[in-house]
Structure formats: structure tokens, C-alpha cells
Nucleic acid binder design. Structure first.
Lengths: 265, 265
DNA sequence: CAGTGGTCTAGACCACTGG
DNA sequence: CAGTGGTCTAGACCACTGC
């Protein structure tokens, strides 16, 4: 349990009490940012598990020796980043991919007709799941060295019986040691939920690069399409805490009956 | 100038003083939400023009007879929605598309190599700009009736001399009365900036539907591409205040040297 | 320097949840 | 009912901007 002391920037005593704070942290920042960082550490270290409640604001305020308002502002930011979820009257909970509501948080493909909602779990077919060595591009995306052990998965998702998504995934070998096709097949839920519960890896944000492409022969066969069927190419890098990349995913989306939905603010 | 009174929910007096509030507003909401709505009205009505400062928090607090903290929370939300921009020591400013920094706020296409930044203003070529009547799909997108007057624009954007984007736009005829190809050509800046300064229409958010398509012959010619060049089809509906749709835009993006960048949270 | 937004506190009360 | 997050206030002080 880290610093229970008014932390940095203590103007009255002049004490620069940075015990418990990770080295390399910029030495000057608002109190609530420091509190946020401390809470982040606890989330990251697994002190509070996904879908469980974190201590109440009052509790955290006394633990960190700050006012409730300061804790509140820290949690506000964490909630805005979808790392925790507030529920009035109940508490603040560690966000998870394991609940129906946040299940397909990163999937932007929705059916052409029905707005606002996905059409439930897709039919998944694992085509391949093997340990290999990271090629240069994969290594760069995952902040590994070329040749490092990675897990590679290929699968097809079908909606209403129609193969719609072909995905290749690369996962760093270390954190995902022990992942097999069987475990992927047996798990009833989203892949990111499995990553959470089985490997303790929480995907927190992601970035996608989207292009339009044509399929190669192998892809054509897997998606049951012709040579000139245009496809959405979606390359995603998903990150855990601390902007650590934990997954590279290359998806091909068939957009005859679906589209990629994006909100711009 | 609307209600200068503690507004609704006044528990002490029991007075439901809703003078000045628009009808149809749900009768019960936090004070700061009501303040936010009032500020929104002033933004919308043009009381404060884009890129100018709105009154200080203290000023608004006395105007609305609430504490500064309450005004602050209202403005916080407006800032989070990119409707205003806070600048410490200077004030809070009405957001605009007219500044370099926020120029291409809605354009997600970035060059393959250089991350984080667009490559400066594209070369624009207006192909067509005419008044027509809204087809059914256009009317639906813009909340008009089929046959209503709309302005239709077609243009090509080129990066480094290469035609990369072909766009068709539809604008409601009323608000954009007087828009011509010449005015579009003569204006030095983003299209949304022109909409702001010349027509008083501020685009506040947008939604995009993305698919992969092949070009038709006309599109092929305009983009100098072959029959089987896959393209990103980006259909955007842009909204002003109050979720009022003000533009339908259908873009075709060439993604050989560029990609559509999206951040998922 | 005065004026602005940004942080922090302490305390009151409200709204919602669950036992 | 007690406990939680949500709202609101009043006041102090800090950090930044521009004159």
C-alpha cells in the first residue's frame, strides 16, 4: 500500500514526500492527478479485480489523506477513460469486457438495418492458433524484438450464417502463455473477456487503421467471396495500462450487409 | 436574457420557476445541466460568436445566481463536447473550425508515413455545385421532405498532386441560400469554416458509416483509377446544435497512401 | 498588477441502492 | 435504514495571461 501522505507539492511543510510514487513521474502535478496515478497502480496491480467495487470515495479520501472532492475528480477522469464505472448508490466498479453491455466495446461493425445495436454473439470459427516468431512489423506493433515468441490466431466470424469477418491476431508470447485453440473455442464470451479472466490482461484502449483492399486467394476462400469483392481492412493495436501494446489484430470486414460506424466529436 | 433566478428544483421555496426555459425540457435535472442548457442557448442564438470569449465563470455565476462551481461543471461538459475551449488565464472561447488547430477536426484520413498530423491543406477542385431537389435518401438524412431544395456539391481533393478524395455533399437549401461554386473556390480555409462565417452554421458533431466499395466509371475517371481499385466509402452526417442534421457527405477515399485513423476508448 | 481558469477543501444535502 | 455516488456551495489559494 503506497503513500498515505499528502504526496507532492506540499506547500505548507515543503516536504517533497514522494515515497511510493514510481520514479520518473514528473515531480509536479495536481493532487488529483497523483491520486489518479495511485488508483491506476492499484487497478494495474490487480489489487481490485474487474467487475468488483473499488473502495468508496470517502475511504480513498482518508487513505490518501485528501478531500473527497479530490478523489472524486481523479475517479471522474478514470470513468471518462472507461477504466472504472460509477453506479450511484452502489459504488465504483472496475470496468470489464465480460459484461453484456460492454462486450463488443471495440467492434464498430454493425448491421446495415438495425441501428444502435449489434446482433448478438457471432458464430466464431478458429482456423488456426499457433506459436510463432514475430516478424518485423508485428514486433514493432507489439513493442517486441523481431523473432520474439508470439501467438498467432486466425478466425472467421459469421453473422446469420454468412462469413463476415476474417481476423488474424498476434499476441505477445509471455503474457499469453498457455493460450490454445481449445481454450478459445471453449470460452463462452468475447475474446477480451477471456484475456481478462484467464490471463489478467485488460485491454483499455485501441487504435485502428482502416483501408479498402481486395482479398487474396486464401482470404477469398475463407470468406466465400470473389476476387473483386472490396473489403474493409482494419488493423487494430490494443493497449493495456501504461500504453503497453498487447494485441495486433488485422481484420477483413465484408461490408455488404454491415458497415463500420464511427462517431466524430 | 433568460431566467436570472435559481431556476428549477428550488426546494426551499418550492417555486417551480421555469420562466425562460424552453418548453419540453424535462422538469427535473441538476442545476448545472440547466446552466449548461442556458449557455447552449446563448451559443446557438449567436449571442457569443465563434472564436470569441464567453463571459467569465464568475460573471456567469452571478448572472445565473449560482456558485462558480456549478457554472464550472456546466462548462466542463461543454468543453468535453468540443463546443467551447478553455484557456487558462485568458478565458473560455467558442469553438470554431476556422483555426489551424481544429481545421480538419472531422477528417480522419492521414498519410501512411507521417503519424499524428495531416499534410496541410489539400488542393481542392470543385466539380459541380448546383441547386436540386432532395431525393428520398438525402431527405431522410437531412430531416427534410423529398423534393425539398438542397444544394449539391461535388469536389475532388488532391494530396501531393494525387486525387485522393471524391466527395459529394448535400446541404439544406434554406440555411445555405446563396452558396455558389465561386464562393467555395474563393474561400481560403476549410469548408466548415466557411459555413460558420458565411452562413452561421456550426458543425458540432458527426456520424460516419464506412464501407469498402469499387468505383463506377464516372468516379474512376475523376480519381484516375482502374475498375478494381478498392475505395473507402465514407458517408457522413454532420449536425449543428440540437442534433439538427445540416450536411450529408458521401466521400470516396483512396487508401493507397493514406488510411482512416480511429481511436477506440 | 488584475483577471482568468485550475485546484483543493469542508461541509451540507440529495438520489439511489440494498438489506 | 446506512452507505454510496451526485450536486451545490463558499471560500482560499495557485498558475497562467496580458497589460
Amino acid at each position: 500500500m503506497p503513500a498515505n501522505i499528502p504526496l507532492l507539492n506540499d506547500s505548507a511543510t515543503g516536504a517533497t514526500a514522494d515515497q511510493g510514487l514510481p520514479a520518473g513521474t514528473p515531480a509536479f502535478s495536481p493532487l488529483y492527478q497523483q491520486i489518479k496515478a495511485l488508483i491506476l497502480q492499484s487497478l494495474q496491480s490487480g489489487e481490485w479485480k474487474p467487475s468488483t467495487a473499488i473502495p468508496s470515495e470517502q475511504e480513498l479520501a482518508t487513505r490518501y489523506r485528501v478531500s473527497q472532492g479530490t478523489v472524486r475528480k481523479a475517479i471522474d477522469e478514470l470513468a471518462a477513460e472507461n477504466l472504472v464505472v460509477r453506479r450511484q448508490g452502489k459504488g465504483t466498479f472496475v470496468a470489464t469486457h465480460a459484461e453484456r453491455h460492454t462486450q463488443y466495446r471495440f467492434l464498430r461493425l454493425v448491421p446495415e438495418g438495425g441501428e444502435h445495436t449489434h446482433e448478438g454473439p457471432a458464430a466464431r470459427r478458429i482456423i488456426d492458433c499457433k506459436r510463432t516468431r514475430a516478424a518485423a512489423d508485428v514486433a514493432r506493433a507489439l513493442s517486441l524484438r523481431a523473432g520474439d515468441a508470439v501467438l498467432q490466431v486466425r478466425r472467421v466470424l459469421s453473422f446469420a450464417g454468412i462469413p463476415t469477418i476474417l481476423e488474424d491476431l498476434w499476441l505477445p508470447g509471455g503474457p499469453f502463455k498457455g493460450l490454445t485453440a481449445e481454450r478459445l473455442n471453449n470460452y463462452d464470451g468475447a475474446m477480451y473477456a477471456l484475456f481478462e479472466t484467464e490471463f489478467g490482461v485488460r485491454m483499455v484502449r485501441a487504435e485502428e487503421k482502416i483501408k479498402a483492399v481486395l482479398p487474396d486467394p486464401e482470404q477469398r476462400e475463407l470468406l466465400h467471396i470473389g476476387a473483386y469483392a472490396p473489403l474493409l481492412s482494419v488493423e487494430r493495436i490494443a493497449y493495456t495500462y501504461n500504453d503497453l501494446p498487447m494485441e495486433l489484430r488485422r481484420g477483413l470486414y465484408l461490408t455488404d450487409t454491415h458497415y463500420y460506424r464511427n462517431a466524430l466529436n
